[in-house]
Design a protein around this nucleic acid. Structure first.
Lengths: 221, 221
DNA sequence: GTTCCACTTGAACGTTGTTCAAGTCGGGTC
DNA sequence: GACCCGACTTGAACAACGTTCAAGTGGAAC
């Protein structure tokens, strides 16, 4: 064994750190090699391709999601906490959501999560495919919300990288307002932004999640 | 005016056709130029950058979404049809969903849609920020579902491009089963796939959408 | 007919993912 | 201890990509 040996786990860990810091399009094999103190091409002996590496990193991140016990908390509280925990994980790793739309990501990490989710909804009285659909509905909502978060973070990074960031941001903001003015309801919100909007889009996640869980509960057979 | 003149609209239209056919990562400026019967670099006089072009194409696509009238149909049916129409649009243009996670996409097309959505939910009795949150919740669910569709289509395209596609697909399938076997509930579904699962993930969209709308209706103040 | 400028072109640059022949080096065998 | 094999690394190189730029081209205005 040579002194400076690479491991697949080391590579995946370094990739996750780089992805968190630089975003999905910020990851490249040369920087990854630099961080690992080896040639960029050495990675290819262990991993196959960049896409495969991203799939590995994504599935690894899935293990961060918590799996609350429905027997202890009740199915609805367990489902709620699962969704919140998943949402937090996506927010920590926004590249994962973007990758989700480009590569099929399915491995032990996601399987572990899916299996537990099915257990939660079956504990809630959802039978057969209804458990699948209920779990998928909540997961889908969390994913959609996370995609919005990812977009925002990607935009912020793009601004940070650019030199004259502030000017760009201001121009973009001005554009948004100019567009909104053409539509009555959007204009009302732009012109007199009441205090209740200050919470930002964060509040919308709780709202939608509770509505979804409530709708599932009363639609159950 | 020279005979072979480019227009921004022509460029955007050609870009959408290419994106629909080849996917987000299948679009490149040289192919776009070829389709427009001009040099690839001619596009840059009209558009600025590839990212800006994608943003233009995305906003253009938004106009395909239908805006049903809540006064005529009732708010809930209008909301339902809006969501279904939006979902169909995302399915026709899966690249849009992927782009949504990478660039901030906001223009007249999306503004028109958002404004109408607010109108629908206000007609349903949602006041102030609740209308925003209700609209955002349904939109988020549709977006998340569309992301799954986009992933599937991207994967299919990747398989189609590769030479030994069938073998790859089979290997991937085998991997998925091998992973699932390690988890009790997933294993049950893999081992005895009852007929009710045949509908595929399509059925899940209706199910989740109805649950969300129901939950919103009963949570309204 | 001359000038002008909106628009196009082809060559070129830097960055990216990936391949490949050539190397290095530790551990097992005689 | 000499040898060698195979796991692992390296640097050079390739093709494809987005983008820039100096050099054009050709219709419209005077």
């Amino acid at each position: 064994m040579a002194r400076d040996q690479l491991t697949r786990d080391q590579i995946v860990k370094a990739a996750i750190e780089l992805l968190d810091a630089e975003g999905l399009e910020g990851l490249n094999m040369r920087d990854l090699g630099r961080r690992l103190r080896s040639a960029a091409t050495a990675v290819y002996w262990h991993v196959g391709s960049k896409d495969a590496l991203i799939a590995l990193a994504a599935d690894e991140a899935w293990h961060e999601a918590e799996l609350p016990d429905p027997a202890e908390l009740g199915w609805r509280e367990a489902a709620y906490r699962m969704a919140v925990s998943l949402h937090a994980m996506f927010t920590r790793h926004p590249w994962l959501v973007q990758a989700f739309g480009a590569y099929p990501i399915y491995g032990p990490g996601k399987a572990r999560h899916d299996d537990h989710a099915l257990g939660v909804y079956e504990a809630g009285g959802f039978v057969g495919i209804e458990a699948d659909q209920a779990a998928a509905a909540v997961f889908t909502f969390v994913l959609g919300n996370a995609l919005g978060v990812a977009a925002q973070q990607a935009f912020n990074r793009k601004l940070a990288r650019d030199a004259n960031a502030e000017e760009l941001a201001r121009a973009h903001q001005a554009d948004a307002v100019a567009v909104a003015v053409g539509f009555p309801r959007l204009r009302a919100r732009v012109e007199s932004p009441s205090a209740e909007y200050a919470a930002g889009p964060e509040g919308g996640f709780e709202f939608g999640l509770r509505a979804m869980l409530h709708g599932l509960e009363s639609g159950r057979h």
